[in-house]
């Protein structure tokens, strides 16, 4: 078991390393000097920068230096959006805003998605189930920008008399969080509901449910004690990837609702070609996601007594 954990951590580290390598070589593939804002800077500036980033040295030396900088948390400085401001500090300032919204979005998605999925499984084939199926299939088919923009339009003044929430985001005002969290959590909620329905149905068909019924347990006890626990375990594994989805939805939702979070900043840095910010943020978010997936994996191992990690996760 300890070996499996080590193997997982090793794979995670390898992944982060792969992403870091990718970002390094992509930087070098960009035409011109990606660390400059102007197209034709004075030669002196160029030399200074080349020396700073070691661009005059052979590629492998640059690569090792780059990795060393990463380990020290040096992600370079912004060249366009906030000139000469360290990328690491930008991330440190903006990530908490995104994380708060993402956290609440996932929270409601899980708290509502799991019970709805179980309810649908329990009422399989009946009206409740069909209605939930329709909503959830729709939910996983609506891109987040559609949900976010339509909500923004409908509830922020587009429809007369329905202006329930402020148009401009204000940190700390709860009303500013309602729509972003809803639109961000809608897809994961539907996805989680679908998955929990499937795993609940799977659990309900197992032999041990038959045993529990033959033992004379009440329906409620069978559902909540025997089926639910087994059904929830697979749901946990979907949570890791869901964090990733939520984050990506974050790019869109923050853009639509003009939330000053890392997601919107990332999108802006892409459109203004602020390479250090793009690369640094990618690396940071990738490490964050890999870390979350690792955490979910380890959590899963802790909760399920029979799990042998790596023994076919599919």
């Amino acid at each position: 078991m300890a070996r499996e954990i080590l193997k997982r951590i090793g794979t995670a580290a390898l992944t982060v390393f792969a992403v870091a390598t990718l970002t390094f070589f992509l930087t070098r593939a960009v035409p011109g000097n990606p660390f400059l804002s102007e197209k034709n800077p004075p030669q002196a500036v160029l030399d200074a920068l080349n020396e700073k980033y070691g661009l005059d040295q052979p590629l492998y030396v640059q690569y090792v230096k780059y990795l060393g900088n990463l380990l020290r948390g040096d992600l370079g400085v912004s060249v366009k959006l906030q000139k000469d401001y360290p990328v690491a500090r930008i991330i440190g300032e903006m990530f908490p805003v995104s994380a708060a919204i993402g956290f609440f979005a996932l929270l409601w998605a899980v708290l509502l998605g799991v019970p709805l999925g179980c309810l649908a499984a329990y009422r399989r084939g009946r009206g409740t189930d069909s209605a939930l199926q329709v909503v959830c299939t729709l939910g996983v088919s609506l891109p987040s920008f559609v949900v976010a923009s339509l909500l923004l339009f409908a509830f922020c003044g587009g429809i007369a008399g329905w202006k329930l929430f402020p148009t401009l985001f204000q940190a700390g005002d709860w009303r500013s969080y309602v729509l972003p969290c809803f639109s961000l959590g809608f897809y994961p909620m539907c996805y989680i509901a679908r998955q929990s329905r499937a795993s609940m149905l799977d659990a309900l068909g197992q032999d041990y449910i038959k045993t529990a019924r033959a033992k004379g347990l009440r329906t409620g006890r069978i559902l909540f004690k025997h089926a639910l626990r087994n059904a929830l375990l697979p749901v946990l594994t979907y949570l890791g990837p869901q964090v990733a989805f939520t984050l990506c939805g974050g790019f869109v939702v923050e853009t639509v609702f003009t939330i000053p979070g890392l997601g919107r900043y990332f999108v802006q840095s892409i459109s203004s070609r602020d390479y250090p910010v793009i690369l640094g943020t990618t690396l940071f978010l990738a490490s964050f996601l890999v870390g979350m997936n690792l955490l979910v994996d380890l959590l899963y191992q802790a909760v399920d007594p029979r799990i042998r990690l790596g023994r076919e996760a599919a």
């Binding site: 990733a244 990506c248 990618t282 990738a286």
Partner: peptide
């Protein structure tokens, strides 16, 4: 385990310029 969407965003941005 690579977060696909992130890397695709990155690739689309950087590769796009390189392709041009």
């Amino acid at each position: 385990s690579i977060p696909e969407v992130l890397v695709i965003l990155l690739l689309s941005t950087v590769l796009g310029d390189a392709l041009l």
